[in-house]
Amino acid sequence: MNLKERLRTHLIEIVRERDPYMATAGHFFVQEYIRQQFAQWGSVEIHTFLVGSKTCKNLILNLPSQAEQQKPDLPPILIGAHYDAVPGTPGADDNATGVAVLLELARKFAAEPAKYPLRLVAFDMEEYGLLGSADYAALLRQQKQPLRLMMSLEMLGYRDSSPGSQSYPPPLERFYPNRGDFISLIGNLRTIRDLIGISRSIRKVGIPSQWLPVSNRGLIVRQTRLSDHAPFWDAGYPAIMVTDTAFLRNPNYHKPSDTIATLDLDFLTGICEGLELSIRLL
């Protein structure tokens, strides 16, 4: 199978109702699917956290760096994607696309490690207020665990090349293209160098990319905080969201129409290739 077919195979398993309260069977199925996929490449750590009386789970796979012998103290790159979805949607773009790419990055970096150790995390309860990532970011901060970078994969598969298909919170429309045919990278100021490098790598594989640095933890343009990178900004970590910009482009956002048929799998495949390249160059 080539990369595009593998991504499609993951999507077929993940795209289903999987709200943690209203679609518990689908939610558990996807959780198990991720765990089994991760387990091919190493031992899977489960980070549990409570929401009321409900036990929720982030699934974690740690992959060693190529230089584990020479430099055992390199901080990891954390790559995360949330696997829960809102009630009433199969959540293809949001966020089965992010999880599918996360699983393929696990495969690629297990076979051929990066310069930095990688920590791949499938976050739960993102749709209920970034609860899984907030709990995990707080834990890392408490443990004084440094990170080279945190990347949140948030909706990666919707492309629309028609003029006017891309909207923005003002005044960004003055500076960015009005066609929704690019992948967007949004990072805090500490990540400017990485934003430039990752954007360059993604363009190198043929996918247009735009980047936006934000100050003050994204509080000025609130739309920049709508994913699992935000708790890492709040905890003082360098963090980036990789996104097709969600509701600013995709009309199926949080709707029953967010299906595989609406995705652009060539776009998704290119993003996965570009991210692999960029992570190898960090």
Rank of each mutant, 00 (worst) to 15 (best):
residue 253 Y to G: 01
residue 125 M to S: 13
residue 69 Q to G: 12
residue 66 Q to L: 12
residue 155 M to W: 01
residue 18 R to C: 04
residue 215 S to D: 12
residue 76 P to W: 02
residue 189 L to C: 12
residue 71 K to C: 12
residue 133 S to K: 06
residue 217 R to Q: 14
residue 62 N to I: 13
residue 169 P to T: 10
residue 154 E to Q: 09
residue 111 A to Q: 06
residue 43 S to R: 10
residue 282 L to Q: 13
residue 234 D to S: 09
residue 239 A to M: 03
residue 160 D to W: 05
residue 20 P to I: 05
residue 215 S to A: 10
residue 148 R to K: 11
residue 119 R to N: 06
residue 279 I to S: 01
residue 20 P to M: 05
residue 158 Y to F: 08
residue 89 T to P: 02
residue 99 V to Y: 00
residue 121 V to E: 03
residue 46 I to W: 10
residue 84 D to F: 04
residue 131 L to Q: 00
residue 91 G to M: 01
residue 258 D to K: 00
residue 54 K to M: 14
residue 17 E to N: 13
residue 128 Y to V: 11
residue 10 H to V: 05
residue 203 R to D: 09
residue 264 D to S: 00
residue 11 L to P: 05
residue 94 D to W: 00
residue 174 R to F: 15
residue 142 Q to C: 14
residue 106 A to N: 02
residue 185 L to G: 04
residue 199 S to M: 09
residue 173 E to T: 13
residue 122 A to P: 05
residue 117 P to R: 04
residue 178 N to G: 14
residue 121 V to T: 06
residue 245 T to K: 05
residue 22 M to V: 12
residue 79 I to N: 01
residue 70 Q to P: 10
residue 11 L to Y: 08
residue 76 P to D: 08
residue 53 S to K: 14
residue 107 R to I: 03
residue 158 Y to H: 08
residue 231 P to T: 03
residue 213 P to L: 14
residue 106 A to T: 01
residue 91 G to N: 03
residue 225 R to P: 13
residue 252 N to V: 03
residue 36 Q to N: 14
residue 250 N to I: 02
residue 185 L to R: 06
residue 96 A to F: 01
residue 26 G to H: 11
residue 139 L to S: 09
residue 149 L to E: 03
residue 90 P to A: 02
residue 29 F to K: 08
residue 176 Y to V: 07
residue 92 A to K: 00
residue 238 P to H: 03
residue 83 Y to E: 03
residue 99 V to H: 00
residue 186 I to R: 02
residue 1 M to F: 12
residue 220 I to L: 15
residue 271 I to K: 00
residue 165 S to G: 08
residue 267 F to E: 02
residue 202 I to S: 06
residue 55 T to K: 11
residue 157 G to N: 04
residue 81 A to L: 05
residue 85 A to E: 01
residue 204 K to G: 09
residue 94 D to P: 00
residue 14 I to K: 08
residue 193 R to C: 11
residue 210 Q to L: 13
residue 216 N to M: 14
residue 127 E to A: 06
residue 169 P to D: 10
residue 131 L to T: 02
residue 264 D to A: 00
residue 88 G to A: 04
residue 200 R to S: 15
residue 109 F to Q: 00
residue 115 K to V: 09
residue 194 D to L: 11
residue 270 G to H: 00
residue 22 M to L: 15
residue 280 R to K: 15
residue 80 G to D: 01
residue 185 L to P: 02
residue 203 R to H: 14
residue 36 Q to Y: 11
residue 142 Q to M: 06
residue 87 P to S: 06
residue 51 V to N: 06
residue 247 F to G: 12
residue 251 P to C: 04
residue 41 W to G: 05
residue 188 N to V: 04
